[in-house]
Design a protein around this nucleic acid. Structure first.
Lengths: 191, 191
DNA sequence: CTTCGAATGTGATGTAGGTCACCCGACCAC
DNA sequence: GTGGTCGGGTGACCTACATCACATTCGAAG
């Protein structure tokens, strides 16, 4: 199946499993389809899975007391997303995940992940690598946040992910950059 | 030895090793002492180790083109620090690490870490856990950055790590919060 | 004791970005 | 068609914080 092949290729970049091991692993992943607008994780609910994006686009975001939205991540193909804080600490979700563009994902429950990591050392290696990549990327983003103004961060984002420009409405881009949509709108029009 | 016992206890919270395995692991860690002001990692140099803090305090920080400093992390006892981006991607360091308060640390080279992870599955599990913790914490900090004003973040920081108040000069606190020291100074005096 | 520099406080002024208000046009559902 | 919602633009005004300049305190080195 196509979706599983994509995940297999993704894992194979980092670690090596036998075909039997792949089949075993992949049997715990569930293919799911989401439509634009569909909610996947709701703040306050319990979370038991993480999601590997095959196609389409999800977003993970936080809503504060003033109902303002802050986007943690646009999850594009080959990316993973969930509320990892809730997932690892077994607490209620504090962030939301929903679907921005019709998506196909593979979902894996936290229990199954831990079980697979216990049974298959190479897979634990893979997940260590993956989390590490997320950690480094988040640190970079934090630094850019402290260091650079909105304009710079906007151009940085679009040069890294040009596809976002057409895929995602500007108010969501603004929520990712941590500015108001008005300010973002002024950036590329004036000057 | 005392330092090694602290690390052993730290690892034991997450995973289980036999005494022989502990001895083996710990033999790759090197005890080092640093004095206040001493530099541990310099941006531009190569990085080959990460550091587990036994006592004292280190900071990891970034210096931008205007020579402004941004602090990524105050590394207190039981914390790990390094330039993980450089360490994992084998690039030159882009951040610096130095010593804020006389410190004892255990250092581990990246090569040894990878080798130990390969040989000892439980240790790979430990490192996955640790990175995950850092990832979640950094995401939280990023959200707080987008969401909260300086005053809130200042109080959040001090309520979480009250010992910083006496240990660390205020200009470093400001560099962690991403504001000027003048603004921080005004926060607790006026009002 | 004196000198120096680091850490800190504080006033005056500048500015990036937020907030509010209102606008338009596109795309539905009915 | 009409009404509603969503994405997006723009003007007027506000505010949090930066920047610059200078003063003060205090501890370490001489």
């Amino acid at each position: 199946m196509k979706a599983q092949e994509a995940l297999k290729a993704h894992i194979a970049k980092i670690t090596t499993l036998t075909d039997e091991q792949y089949d075993y692993c992949l049997s715990f992943f569930k293919t799911q389809h989401f439509q634009k607008g569909q909610v996947i994780i709701t703040a306050g609910d319990t979370v038991d899975s993480e999601y590997f994006v095959i196609s389409g686009c999800l977003k993970s975001f936080f809503i504060n007391d003033d109902m303002k939205m802050f986007i943690l991540q646009f999850a594009m193909p080959d990316w993973w997303t969930s509320d990892y804080n809730a997932l690892y600490n077994h607490t209620k979700a504090s962030i939301n995940v929903d679907c921005i563009a019709d998506a196909t994902v593979l979902s894996l429950t936290s229990n199954d992940r831990e079980m697979l990591c216990r049974e298959l050392h190479p897979l634990e290696h893979f997940f260590r690598w993956r989390t590490n990549k997320g950690y480094v990327a988040t640190q970079k983003r934090l630094l850019s946040f402290m260091n650079n103004n909105v304009k710079y961060r906007y151009e940085e984002l679009l040069s890294q992910y040009p596809e976002l420009y057409n895929l995602v409405p500007k108010n969501l881009i603004a929520a990712y950059l941590g500015v108001s949509r008005e300010t973002l709108s002024r950036l590329y029009n004036e000057k």
